[in-house]
Design a protein around this nucleic acid. Structure first.
Lengths: 121, 121
DNA sequence: TGCTGAATTGATGGAATCATCATATCAATT
DNA sequence: AATTGATATGATGATTCCATCAATTCAGCA
């Protein structure tokens, strides 16, 4: 089942992309692959500390959504991002989240710096 | 329950952001709000063709994930993106998906334009 | 106050997802 | 061919998510 299939309505394609990204471990995996360009399952097991079959399931989700590709060399399976744009998307998300979080911080600071209004309920 | 809370581990924050985006109708809503800056529930009902309570549930998800904010003026409720960066993220996703899809297209074209190799299995 | 339109909430059933465990495959080695 | 190490698949229960329907809240108006 190919999920990033241009024959589907665009909103669904977009939602499926985000669905593939919608789990902390999968983000973790994709960022490992963004940084390392290629990683074996063993590498990712070591980096994430996940149980083998659990990681494998998430890798299978990522494969199903067309976000990663795998290749077996000898008995080791190597994973790679299916498209370099995925790293770019994660990078943008990271930057935006950074802005959002520091925005939240500065807003909180701003609020805390305001003079206290007695009984302002 | 605030989901974009900087006290949580970063992977979870990121995954929650993507979870909020992980449904076609929510993408639809967010793009309406990206374009229009502000929209009433009635506007969105008209544009999406959803049933009222169904739309409301998705709006509630978006509120829960901190992606939109709402404001009631008289009997009408208006929604807005919680942060302009969300429109930016969608824009980037749209561009990247465009590249991905045309990449897929051009690869398919490339493959189809190759000379046929007899019995190349 | 009671009615109406706008929006939300609650309840429900069904589907999808998550996490764990056991089992299976696959390739290299003995 | 039997064993081992690496990875994947299948089965299960728990949880979350989706869609529909009924019931509720809230503001404005008769």
């Amino acid at each position: 089942m190919v999920v990033l299939d241009e024959r589907r309505p665009l909103y669904e394609i977009k939602a499926n992309l985000f669905k593939g990204l919608a789990h902390p471990y999968r983000i973790r995996v994709l960022e490992i692959l963004s940084a390392a360009d290629e990683a074996s399952v063993a590498d990712m097991l070591a980096e994430t500390g996940l149980e083998a079959s659990h990681l494998s399931q998430h890798l299978s989700v990522l494969r199903r959504y067309g976000l990663v590709v795998s290749e077996r060399r000898a008995s080791v399976v190597y994973y790679r991002l299916a498209l370099p744009q995925i790293a770019e998307l994660l990078r943008v998300a990271r930057v935006l989240l950074g802005e959002i979080l520091t925005d939240a911080d500065s807003q909180r600071e701003l609020v805390n710096s305001l003079p206290t209004i007695p009984d302002a309920r």
